[in-house]
């Protein structure tokens, strides 16, 4: 076994249970796992931001500008330096299998939401070709759910290249192809300002969807 992130050999722990059970396969070594910061106690109850108590400032702002669009966001890990490096390698360099390292935690994080329709964030054709895969589809597949396509996207700049202000004022890059009568879960890799998921959620709500929440790996 080797760590998918740092390629170091992982030595399986030998305990009494290894006598009667096969060794659990680990994807990530303990050093890498320790650098990844899990969100144990969500600070903000609406968006899982770690460093605030009760509703965070962003969420209060959202309540004012677009109330009732998104029912809540769940995340698994904090977006720290290690996570930034991870996203850079996984998404931008295109190292697809890195996601296996987080698969287990993603599945755990999605336990209550398996009944919902897992909707992925579409990429423009151009970007999907360049990257070779759709990151949000990959997450849904890693969680063992069926990705549902409800949206289309016009080609636009990467969100991560923009300043916060530009992001907030950007027009909606998505168009709804189909509405859903069932509750929907939007899955993405990072929740930064919440702009992307709210763009999608507002369209869904306008189309008559009963409830829209979101799930991201990093917050």
């Amino acid at each position: 076994m080797r760590c998918v992130i740092c390629f170091e050999e992982i030595l399986p722990e030998v305990t009494w249970s290894t006598f009667y059970k096969p060794v659990e396969e680990k994807k990530m070594c303990s050093t890498c796992a320790s650098k990844n910061e899990k969100i144990t106690v969500p600070g903000c109850t609406a968006c899982f931001r770690m460093d605030s108590k009760g509703l965070c400032r962003d969420c209060l702002q959202w309540q004012k500008t677009s109330p009732g669009v998104l029912d809540g966001n769940k995340s698994v890990y904090a977006y720290n330096a290690f996570a930034k490096d991870f996203v850079a390698r996984w998404k931008y360099r295109g190292d697809y299998v890195l996601l296996e390292a987080l698969q287990e935690e993603i599945q755990k994080g999605l336990t209550g939401d398996r009944e919902k329709q897992a909707v992925y964030v579409p990429l423009s054709e151009e970007r999907e070709k360049e990257r070779g895969f759709n990151q949000s589809k990959a997450i849904i597949q890693a969680a063992g759910l069926q990705p549902v396509s409800l949206f289309q996207r016009k080609h636009s700049e990467k969100q991560s290249k923009r300043k916060k202000r530009d992001r907030m004022e950007a027009e909606n890059p998505f168009t709804l192809i189909e509405t859903s009568p069932d509750p929907v879960l939007i899955v993405d890799d990072i929740y930064t300002t919440g702009r992307t998921v709210r763009h999608m959620a507002s369209l869904l709500k306008a189309g008559g969807c009963p409830s829209v929440s979101s799930f991201t790996i990093f917050r």
Binding site: R89, R93, G94, D95, Y96, V97, G132, F133
Partner: peptide, 21 residues
């Protein structure tokens, strides 16, 4: 990885991925 452009599972090299996949 499931490759979107060719629609199949494609092998890629992780050793030199820093220089582009």
């Amino acid at each position: 990885m499931p490759h979107a452009s060719c629609g199949r599972d494609c092998t890629y090299c992780r050793y030199c991925i820093q220089m582009g996949r």
